[in-house]
Design a protein around this nucleic acid. Structure first.
Lengths: 109, 109
DNA sequence: AACATCAATCGTAATATTGCAATATTATGG
DNA sequence: CCATAATATTGCAATATTACGATTGATGTT
């Protein structure tokens, strides 16, 4: 054991969980916030910005790329990263929908 | 190594990451959705509803309780769980704020 | 009290994640 | 082609998460 039993759940549930997983690390949050703030792209200044080793940052970037939250284009020897607006909106919508489920106060224990 | 270096990041970044972590498992998503849908509380029907062992469900419930997303009140031998509307709204707001960062199309690579 | 029921906890195994040093890869400039 | 700079990958160690059987604890029932 130790592995998530994804087959027990709906695709939507696994999707939301995977999205959440992509955001479930402060380094990845910091990367996304930095990219949003700078708006334009940056290279591996992220390594300096956050205090983690280059290899570690690279790994986090890879994860964010894997879920489509960011994109990177080669620019000389460095790589220009930025938010992928399309996926960003998708995330936003899914979370919105998830949380919009009306939670009526006092209808419970 | 292996442990997240939380000290490198802001409280807000760690908060968002922790929230995301709480949602980063399909079983916990399923539990929340079920609680939202039923609106009122339920006992350990969750064990039947999802296909996981009692001990496993209990662990997931504990995590959700730990972040304050759900609350449980004793009701005879069983326990009545339900969404905690206050924390639910907090989550919603934090994610909203996070994703509302305007991502302008085409401003990038 | 004895028993049944449900949930929490303990102990343990399997797997996943995080982090980094070392190495490999890719692109540029000389 | 060679050296350099930037990023990616590999391999490994440490820690975290997931899952479950077995046990314990609490509560209600007979």
């Amino acid at each position: 054991m130790g592995a998530t039993k994804t087959d027990l759940f709906t695709k939507q549930q696994n999707d939301i969980a995977n999205m959440a997983k992509a955001l479930a690390h402060p380094a990845r949050i910091a990367i996304l916030q930095h990219l949003v703030k700078i708006n334009a792209c940056i290279g591996g200044d992220l390594v300096e910005e956050l205090g983690l080793a280059q290899a570690t940052i690279s790994q986090h970037l890879k994860e964010l790329k894997a879920v489509g939250l960011i994109q990177g284009t080669v620019e000389g020897t460095s790589i220009c990263y930025c938010i992928n607006p399309k996926t960003w909106m998708q995330y936003r919508n899914l979370f919105d929908k998830f949380f919009d489920s009306s939670v009526t106060e006092g209808s419970c224990c």
